[in-house]
Nucleic acid binder design. Structure first.
Length: 444
DNA sequence: CGATATGATTTGCA
DNA sequence: TGCAAATCATATCG
């Protein structure tokens, strides 16, 4: 009420330029203090009438009047008054409904996207899918969930998510700028307070964030689907090819005293097996290395649990290894007949040489020993072993380690049921066998 | 179809 | 963090 009076007073005191300029509708002169109440009311009535009829005018006319209004010297004062009024009424209408708390659902979605590595830092290895949350450490995360397919798909989802998000953000910004410009433009002709602009921006942002939430929701769904599919695929058991099993077994039995392949050995084995393993299913290389770890873990535990059951297999592989070694060494000897007999076999150039590993001798001991029961090893194999024994005793000077009657397998395990610690080799192991790093693979 | 073999996962420990 | 042990789940065999 009070405000209205002020407006009217203001309007009354400003002969609206438009009217006077355009002629025809000149306002009555201000009455000042001399007029009666009736006269004043009449003025106000006139002004209101003019305002009301402004919409009836043609666009050009209105435009011209608007321009006239804008140019009027009293316009700023009048405008600020209008702004003030609007501000006050606007505030009272809105009340205190600002500052809505963060949407819990949105927070949940954000957290999940972060955990799944979709919205997090670029390479963060955030594929905390499945169980291995510990895989978060970057670098050589070969034991982590390293399914190439999964990663590829996740990256795809991630990319789509980010492009879409960016698109939305851009659109939001563009729209906001546009609206702000519009409002600013309009603010010259109608009272628009900064608060109002702010509020409008807030509304726009809310609208866009609801769209973003939809995007996040569908991204989450996609990740969940991918994850479940991936886990199913992983859980599914594949059977290694015979070749791969053979390679692994060979390594296992020829390193029976310490069947813990180093990272390099695992890599090597993985490489060797990957040819065959990859035939079973689409298995990336990094995964085969992880399969090797699995295999050795299973093998160790199962071997230890039932050594008797694996005896046959052990002997078989020992013989096989012996044959291979015999061939290799024989070939080497033949190739370098003139060499001194003490020269170590040069056939050990392979990355991990089964035939020359220290465990070979354990195998041979078992084959040669009294307690050997593997009747399935044929005489020809035995003769090969004998040849090998002979050759090796000449070439490497290991003769003192041969001829024992120890069964290698049980003795490779210590009393605790664990494998012999490489740092404390027992007498069973060839005296020449040093710590793990020395005896393994390419030594000799 | 049940038994067995074996690859994969989980859990707990040092 | 890597391993042992337990366990799960599936492929294969008889």
């Amino acid at each position: 009420m009070d405000e209205q009076a002020r407006i009217m007073q203001a309007l009354g005191g400003v002969s609206l330029a438009g009217h006077s300029v355009q002629g025809g509708m000149a306002l009555p002169p201000p009455h000042g203090h001399d007029g009666t109440d009736d006269g004043r009311k009449q003025d106000i009535g006139d002004i209101l009438h003019q305002i009301m009829t402004i919409t009836d005018q043609s666009l050009d006319e209105a435009q011209a009047k608007k321009h006239g209004l804008n140019c009027h010297r009293m316009k700023p004062a009048l405008f600020s008054v209008l702004c003030e009024i609007k501000e006050k009424t606007g505030l009272s209408i809105r009340g205190a409904q600002e500052e809505d708390p963060p949407d819990p659902q949105l927070m949940r979605l954000d957290n999940m996207l972060l955990a799944e590595g979709v919205s997090g830092p670029e390479k963060g290895g955030g594929s905390a899918a499945a169980a291995a949350a510990a895989a978060a450490s970057g670098g050589a995360s070969d034991n982590s969930i390293e399914h190439s397919d999964y990663r590829a798909k996740l990256t795809q989802i991630r990319q789509i998510y980010h492009t879409e998000l960016e698109k939305y953000e851009q659109a939001c910004n563009e729209f906001t700028t546009h609206v702000m410009n519009l409002l600013r433009e309009q603010s010259r002709t109608r009272p628009i307070s900064p608060k109002e602009i702010e509020r409008m921006v807030g509304i726009i942002h809310r609208k866009f964030s609801s769209i973003q939430m939809q995007l996040k929701q569908s991204t989450c769904e996609a990740v969940m689907i991918l994850r479940s599919r991936f886990l199913d695929a992983r859980r599914k058991r594949r059977n290694f090819s015979k070749q791969a099993t053979e390679i692994l077994n060979e390594y296992f039995y020829s390193h029976l005293s310490n069947p813990y392949p180093s990272e390099e050995a695992k890599e090597e084995l993985a490489k060797k097996c990957s040819i065959t393993v990859s035939q079973v299913g689409a298995v990336s290389f990094s995964q085969t290395q992880w399969l090797v770890s699995n295999w050795f873990g299973n093998k160790r535990i199962r071997y230890k649990k039932n050594i008797g059951k694996f005896q046959e297999e052990a002997n078989l592989y020992a013989a096989k290894t012996a044959v291979t070694a015999a061939h290799a060494v024989a070939a080497a000897v033949q190739n370098s007949q003139t060499n001194s007999p003490t020269t170590p076999s040069s056939g050990s150039s392979g990355s991990f040489n089964l035939s020359n590993s220290g465990d070979m001798f354990l195998s041979m001991q078992s084959l040669n020993g009294d307690s050997y029961q593997g009747a399935q090893v044929g005489a020809n194999v035995q003769s090969q072993v004998d040849t090998l024994r002979h050759v090796i005793s000449q070439t490497a000077g290991y003769s003192e380690g041969l001829g024992g009657n120890t069964m290698y397998s049980p003795h490779s395990l210590n009393t605790n049921g664990g494998w012999q610690d490489a740092t404390t080799p027992s007498s069973v192991i060839s005296p020449n066998e040093g710590p793990r790093s020395v005896h393994s693979d390419t030594s000799n």
